[in-house]
Write a protein that binds this DNA or RNA. Sequence first.
DNA 1: AACCAGGACGTGA
DNA 2: TCACGTCATGGT
Length: 236
Amino acid sequence: MERSRFKVIYKTLFSWYGPQGWFPLVELHERNGVNPTKSGSINGYHPGDYSYPKNREQQFEIGVGCILTQNTAWPNVERALLNLKKQGALTPNGLNDLSLATVKEAIRPAGYYNQKAKYLKAFVAFFNAIGSKTPERKELLAVKGIGEETADAILLYSFRQPVFVVDTYSKRIFRALGFIGEKDSYQKIKGLVENNFKGNYKEYQELHALLVEHAKRYYTRTPEKVTDPLLSVVEG
DNA sequence: AACCAGGACGTGA
DNA sequence: TCACGTCATGGT
């Protein structure tokens, strides 16, 4: 049955890897230092603690991180975030006050800096405009630079909404498990999971982060050299 | 030294 | 609607 399959995946991955503590925050990185288990990566995670974001600034920072990490490795995003914070621009007002050229320079390590700088400017305007309320998905999608995945990631990690984030990693895993087709749409995959998983925001946060962690172990570089242990657990 | 990473947009069929 | 080219740095 569909429903139990996603629950099984969730419980299995959780038993293997434990809570992932997404979404990382630079404040925690500076407090915890470098995590030796994740190469070159900060330790901005907070496993088992679902009380983040604790304030509006952290809420904003997560949104910025979601945009900067588009098709980009997290260590590169970290540098950009730290540069922004150094400029006092990891807050709505701070980033708003920074010139476009300065934003570009600060986020350069994250790649695509010309477009992402504009995306961030558009996001600040949007973030200030919505005040303290949770945005609709449609509204997020109307912001330049925010596509389907980024919209869901922001809803999930910044606004604690129980939505599933479809990314390249979850697609690879679900493809291997035979759950989805080669060119299934984003909405189709999102619907498939949400209609069957039915978890709270904490579970959706973990599910997404766990799938990323799992995919990094079995679906990158030379995946054919490693057999995904999930295959024998779920049995297509 | 290619290849790729927690995608989105603009364009032309 | 959809396939395709473009955007860019840094790790492996």
